[in-house]
């Protein structure tokens, strides 16, 4: 390892690394958007028990749950360009950011689908029946009654997943994305103070984590205000 430990450097490094925090948020936001779409696409066939599609969805979820995110990242990074070459689309020169967002979106989507599924099934049948009884169509009943309630039920689990994936964005540098961790590697190389770099990174991730947690807990209070007995 490099030179002797200098705790003062951490204060020096944190602002430098913070300059790259937007990359983390960008990956996360892109992944969440893709993830929501994938989550519903995967959850709906299983909720409505559509044969074949439901089985494919189950295998997809099992694969996502069964493999490390790093392996998923490599599979998409090396595999997707090959796959698209078959239909004569060349994406091999696209930025590694693209591959990270796609991978994380596909991955978080698989786990989102499980949360969505559990939340939708936990809304009481009586809610749907009441919606039907006042003349709503199944689609309108789902959108207006079931979905808002499932969102409130699902939010804590969605929040946990999002925070977990936020931490996993630290692996994006392994295919060359210049995020905080990527910048940390170069900073470590130029200064030979890797340990201080990693401690600085840990502090930043921790702060981002606390920030996300407080945002989510505020959201939870908002969307589940109807459950409070008094107030």
């Amino acid at each position: 390892m490099g030179k002797s430990f200098d705790i003062g450097l951490i204060l020096d490094f944190i602002p430098k690394l913070l300059g790259y925090v937007h990359v983390t948020f960008l990956i996360l936001a892109g992944a969440i958007l893709i993830g929501i779409v994938i989550g519903f696409l995967v959850a709906l066939p299983r909720l409505y028990r559509i044969p074949v599609l439901a089985q494919i969805a189950a295998v997809y979820v099992s694969f996502i749950r069964g493999t490390p995110i790093l392996i998923q990242l490599f599979l998409i990074y090396y595999g997707l360009p090959e796959l698209l070459k078959l239909v004569s689309i060349d994406i091999s020169q696209w930025s590694s950011m693209f591959f990270v967002i796609v991978t994380y979106g596909l991955s978080i989507g698989g786990l989102f689908s499980e949360v969505i599924r559990a939340a939708v099934t936990s809304v009481e049948r009586g809610q749907t029946e009441a919606a039907y009884s006042i003349g709503m169509s199944p689609f309108v009943a789902f959108i207006r009654i079931v979905l808002p309630q499932s969102f409130a039920i699902a939010l804590p689990n969605l929040a946990n997943l999002i925070i977990a994936y936020m931490k996993d964005t630290s692996l994006a540098f392994s295919i060359g994305v210049m995020d905080m961790t990527g910048r940390g590697q170069t900073l470590g190389t130029t200064t030979s103070h890797f340990l201080e770099v990693y401690i600085s990174l840990a502090v930043i991730y921790y702060l981002v984590c606390i920030l996300l947690e407080s945002i989510f807990s505020r959201m939870e209070k908002r969307v589940s205000r109807y459950e409070r007995k008094f107030g």
Partner: peptide
């Protein structure tokens, strides 16, 4: 719980 595992590895390793 609020920091990535990869950093735990690096920090312990160094």
């Amino acid at each position: 719980r609020g920091t990535p595992l990869i950093l735990h590895i690096y920090i312990v390793y160094l």
